[in-house]
Write a protein that binds this DNA or RNA. Structure first.
Lengths: 224, 224
DNA sequence: GAATTCAACTACGTATACATTAAAAGGAGA
DNA sequence: TCTCCTTTTAATGTATACGTAGTTGAATTC
C-alpha cells in the first residue's frame, strides 16, 4: 500500500479531484459547470482548472463547451458499446502477447491473486470488492501484455466503465461465470497459447458487454 | 476540397501549427523547446502554447518536462511496434464491423477510390501520392467501422506513423503487395464476411509493420 | 583536482486583468 | 403577440505579472 502522494501542482490536483468527482458522481452526468465555479470549489484560480479540463476532455470524461461551461459527459449505451469494443480488442491483444511472452507461474502471481480475490468476494457477495479485484485483474493483464500505450488506453476507458458500473452496481446479478473464464485464461497464458488466450478473453469481454448494456437499457439509459 | 478554416482560437492555432511542425520535422525529434520560445515563434503568449502542449502530450507527440522545455518525442522502433500493434487490432475491428454493417457498393465507393488512387500512384512510382492515398484508405476504413473512439485513436496514432514514414519515405521499396490485400478486403466487406475482413486486414497490417520496423532498423533508429 | 555549497538566474506555475464575443435580455415595430 | 433588432451581460480566451523552485555555474573547501 503506497500512499497516493499529494500532487505537486495545482493542475495535477485539479485533474485528480475533478476526475474523482466525475467518477463518484459528485459531478453528475449531463451537468454543466463554469470554470469559475469549479475554480472556487477547488480553491484555486481558473488557470489550473482550465488546464485540467483540457486533459479531462482528452480522456473523454467531459466536453468543453465555450460559454456554456464544461459538460460532464453522459454514459450512453452507444458509448459503452464503443468502449467495450475497444477494451475487447486491446485486452485480447494483451492476453495474446502475455501468452507469447512465456511468463512463469511466478510472473503471473498477481494475476492469480486477483482471480482468487474475485472468488472470495463472490463468496461473500461483496460486489464492491469484486469490482475492485476485477479491475486489478484487467490492469495486471494489460501490464503483462507489455504495450505501454495499450496500458494507457485501457486505464482511460476503464474510468468510463467504472462510471457505468457505479450506476448499475446494485442492479446487476453476481457475475458467476467470470471466474471460469479467468482460470482458463490463466492456463492459456501459462502454457503460451497466444491465440487461445486471445479468444478466451474476447469471449469473456463480449459477455461482459452484453450484460452491462442490457442493464443500462433496463435502467432507461438513453442509447445516444 | 474544403479549405481548412483558420482556427477560431490561438490555442487551436498553436495546436495545429505545433502538430504540423512536429510532423514535418521542423521541430526535430529529441529537441527541447521552452514555452517562451515557442510562444515567440508562433506570435502569441505562453498561455495558448501551454494549453496546446498539454494536448500534444496527450497525443504522444511531445513530453512536457518542467524547466527543461517540451521534448519532442523520438520515434523509436519500440514505439512503432506498439503503435502498429494497436492499429492492427483496431483497424481489424473496424474492418469486421464494416463487413457486418452490410454496406452497399455505393457506400464503399470512397474506399474503392482510395484503392484505385494507390494503384495509380504505384504505377507512377509516386511515393508521396501513394502515402496520401494509403492514409485516406485507412481513414475511410475506420470511418466505415462506425466506432467514433476507434476513429480518434487511429487518427492520433496515424500521426506517429506519418512521422516514421517521413523519416523512411525514400528508403522503402514500392509496396507492391498492398493492393491485392486492399482488393480482397473490399470484397470481404461487400459480401459481409466479418471474420474474413478482420483476418485479411490483420495480416496486411502485420506485413506493413515488419516492413517499417526493418527499415527503421536499417536506418539506425534506436530500439528504445 | 574533485566535490560540495551557495548564489544568481530563469523557466514554470499560478493568479489576475482585460479584451472578445456569444448569449440573453429587453424594446420597438408590425 | 410575435419577430427582429439593439443593448447588456457574462464567460471565455489571452496576455501579463509575479512568486517559487529547479538548475546552473562559480566559488570554496577538502
Amino acid at each position: 500500500m503506497t500512499e497516493p502522494d499529494r500532487p505537486k501542482t495545482s493542475t495535477a490536483a485539479a485533474l485528480n479531484r475533478l476526475r474523482e468527482m466525475i467518477l463518484s458522481g459528485e459531478l453528475s452526468a449531463q451537468s454543466d459547470h463554469l470554470e469559475a465555479e469549479l475554480a472556487t470549489r477547488l480553491g484555486m484560480s481558473r488557470t489550473p482548472v482550465r488546464e485540467a479540463t483540457l486533459v479531462l476532455q482528452g480522456m473523454g470524461l467531459l466536453e468543453v463547451r465555450p460559454r456554456k461551461g464544461v459538460r460532464i459527459k453522459p454514459i450512453t449505451i452507444r458509448d459503452m458499446e464503443e468502449v467495450y469494443e475497444i477494451l475487447t480488442e486491446l485486452e485480447s491483444l494483451a492476453a495474446a502477447r502475455a501468452a507469447a511472452a512465456g511468463y512463469s507461474a511466478d510472473d503471473l502471481r498477481a494475476l492469480k491473486e486477483a482471480t482468487e480475490e474475485m472468488d472470495a468476494a463472490l463468496a461473500r457477495e461483496d460486489r464492491a470488492a469484486w469490482a475492485a479485484a476485477d479491475e486489478a485483474y484487467h490492469t495486471e493483464l494489460v501490464r503483462l501484455g507489455g504495450n505501454s500505450r495499450v496500458i494507457g488506453i485501457v486505464q482511460m476507458y476503464n474510468d468510463q466503465v467504472r462510471r457505468a458500473r457505479a450506476a448499475t452496481l446494485d442492479a446487476r446479478p453476481l457475475p458467476t461465470a467470470s471466474n471460469a473464464d479467468h482460470r482458463a485464461l490463466y492456463e492459456a497464458i501459462l502454457t503460451g497459447d497466444a491465440e487461445g488466450a486471445r479468444e478466451i478473453h474476447r469471449r469473456h469481454r463480449i459477455a461482459a458487454r452484453k450484460l452491462l448494456t442490457a442493464i443500462l437499457s433496463d435502467l432507461g439509459q438513453p442509447y445516444v
